[in-house]
């Protein structure tokens, strides 16, 4: 493949060619290597992953084509998420966090390896099935809230179920959820009448409208002050304890990471033990002291990255 050489040379320069990926690599070298991870991952990860996992990943590789380069955002990782888990994924920008979150959220499918949702390989779903499974199982909390400005707080919470033609039940549930996040008095406020913390709480209420099993939160406290962030984290704890909702969050914030059961470092598309990658130099790397990837109930495995060049 002719694209290998420029790819390799740019790698040697130490310049990641694309922002969202890790490093690129040539498929000629990687194909056998991936096979190797496959086994490693299967062997090392499987025993760690509990059987009741909502989502499970094995040897997950995600590549993007950018021009004539292939960017490998995830380099063969394994994971499993059990009910009630609270996992924080930390890592420098461009380490593949967003890619991982998209795979966990069924917004994307892996290039190789498999992601299974309650035992079914998500690659078997077509777009419509993936959409409906996503709706049933996963709640999203986005970094910038993404509330719809034309809808009131309660309507925003209802939004995922708005087309379900069960307006009464939906309204009731939405109202309950807003009351639960402490916004019972803000039902009819529009997003621009709410503070950042209130918006985030509306967004969390929205993510819960379909009683998800897994909550994916992208920088859930990113735009909030510490007190408000605490409220959000308390809410996560409550949800896990009372309803067994698993929470996976991508964060730059140590504070969130400290609150999590497990912290996973994602660096250059690989999951690593915490502390391994302080030398990467990214400011985020220094935040990972709290990570403890080897927790007994821990279900996040990694290939160890032995075969990868950096």
């Amino acid at each position: 493949m002719s694209s290998e050489e420029p790819t390799d040379s740019s790698s040697a320069d130490g310049e990641p060619p694309v922002t969202d990926g890790g490093t690129e690599s040539d498929s000629g070298v990687d194909a056998p290597a991936t096979g190797g991870f496959d086994q490693k991952a299967t062997n090392t990860v499987d025993p760690e992953i509990p059987d009741d996992s909502i989502l499970r990943g094995r040897n997950v590789v995600k590549e993007y084509e950018t021009g004539d380069q292939i960017v490998r955002a995830l380099k063969g990782i394994g994971f499993g998420i059990a009910p009630g888990d609270f996992v924080a994924v930390v890592g420098p920008s461009g380490s593949g966090k967003s890619t991982l979150l998209n795979l966990l959220g069924l917004l994307d499918v892996p290039t190789r390896g498999e992601v299974t949702l309650e035992g079914t390989d998500v690659a078997e779903f077509d777009d419509a099935e993936r959409t409906s499974r996503r709706k049933e199982v996963i709640g999203f909390v986005f970094q910038s809230f993404y509330l719809i400005p034309t809808l009131t707080a309660v309507e925003n919470v209802e939004m995922p179920r708005m087309l379900d033609r069960t307006p009464k039940q939906t309204r009731q549930r939405a109202t309950e959820l807003l009351e639960r996040v402490g916004l019972g008095d803000r039902l009819d406020h529009y997003p621009d009448e709410l503070s950042g913390g209130q918006k985030q709480r509306v967004a969390i209420a929205r993510s819960l409208i379909n009683d998800p099993e897994l909550l994916l939160a992208d920088e859930p406290t990113g735009n909030l002050d510490r007190d408000t962030g605490d409220q959000i984290l308390d809410l996560f704890d409550e949800l896990r304890e009372e309803e067994g909702v698993a929470v996976v969050t991508v964060t730059h914030d140590d504070y969130v990471a400290e609150a999590a059961d497990r912290v996973v470092n994602l660096i250059d598309g690989e999951l690593r033990e915490s502390g391994d990658h302080a030398h990467h130099g990214d400011s985020d790397g220094t935040h990972q002291n709290t990570a403890d990837g080897g927790e007994p109930g821990g279900s996040v495995g990694t290939d160890g990255g032995g075969g990868e060049t950096e």
């Binding site: 419509a128 959409t131 996503r134 709706k135 999203f140 986005f142 993404y146 719809i148 993510s207």
Partner: peptide
């Protein structure tokens, strides 16, 4: 775009 992406993410089908 972002808003439509959210719709898709929270379970709105392409058709919707």
């Amino acid at each position: 775009e972002g808003e439509i992406g959210v719709l898709r993410a929270v379970g709105y089908s392409k058709f919707a």
